[in-house]
């Protein structure tokens, strides 16, 4: 079933990891895709272009647009270009994240500012700039969060930003209700993507966790698809946890 046929989905930070998987799954359901990446000339640009070709091979439109969401001007350009090239936008998936891997108390002022600039302000810049198109399409916004929003993770200052964005999700869901734009979030558990390779650096025995507690990127993407579908029309302002039950149990009896 092509639930996203003729829909345009923009995923921030989609050259790799969860964002990439969401882009692929949306394309498999019929969507045209805007692939966003931050840095010109590096590996994420080539990965973004490769993803674009994969989506095109599925028979859908795809464009790559470079933009650093921490810059308001860059975000404006991202959405102008989206309108120019795709004509509209139905779903905005806020997936991009960027953070140093150090405890909060060790962050320099500029690292703290960058943390907030990308992971809080950047997401809000995107929401603001996407609004005109989302109003026209009566589309949706989905924020990709992580369990770091509510549990301690070693050297993971991003957690506090994820918590802030889950709050923004509730706020915007109400304030955009009149415009018929849905806003929800998906909170992932431990997903084996590039970022997991960071986690394992600070969490020595993480690989001894039972395999069935690791979330597959497709499992996150499937819930994003659900939130993009008519079937989720009753859900608003919510953060749906997709963690294979990791956060449910204080103790696990094997």
């Amino acid at each position: 079933m092509h639930i996203l046929k003729d829909k345009v989905v923009l995923i921030t930070g989609s050259s790799r990891g969860i964002g990439r998987e969401i882009a692929k799954q949306c394309a498999l359901k019929g969507a045209d895709i805007v692939v966003n990446y931050r840095k010109t000339g590096g590996s994420s640009q080539s990965k973004a272009e490769e993803l674009c070709r994969e989506v095109e091979a599925m028979g859908h439109r795809a464009v790559t647009i470079q933009a650093d969401i921490a810059s308001k001007q860059s975000v404006k350009n991202l959405f102008h270009e989206t309108r120019d090239k795709m004509g509209k936008l139905d779903f905005l998936i806020l997936n991009a994240a960027r953070a140093p891997f150090k405890p909060l108390e060790k962050l320099l002022e500029r690292e703290l500012k960058q943390l907030v600039d990308t992971n809080y302000l950047g997401n809000i810049f995107c929401i603001q700039a996407a609004l005109p198109m989302l109003e026209e399409s009566e589309g949706g916004i989905i924020f990709i969060s992580s369990l770091g929003s509510r549990f301690y993770n070693p050297a993971y200052p991003l957690g506090s930003m994820k918590a802030a964005m889950e709050s923004v999700t509730r706020d915007c869901a109400e304030s955009l209700r009149g415009k018929h734009i849905s806003v929800n979030a998906v909170c992932g558990g431990i997903v084996k993507t590039d970022s997991f390779k960071v986690l394992r650096q600070f969490w020595d025995n993480i690989e001894t966790l039972p395999a069935d507690l690791f979330v597959e990127p497709e499992e996150i993407a499937d819930v994003v698809l659900f939130l993009c579908s008519e079937a989720s029309r009753g859900i608003t302002g919510q953060t749906i946890v997709v963690d294979k039950g990791l956060s449910n149990a204080i103790c696990r009896m094997n």
């Binding site: 790799r16 840095k39 000339g41 590096g42 590996s43 994420s44 640009q45 080539s46 590039d194 970022s195 390779k197 960071v198 650096q201």
Partner: peptide
Amino acid sequence: LGAESLDFLDINY
């Protein structure tokens, strides 16, 4: 070679 910070983790891994 165009490496970005996440790439180093991948290479190290």
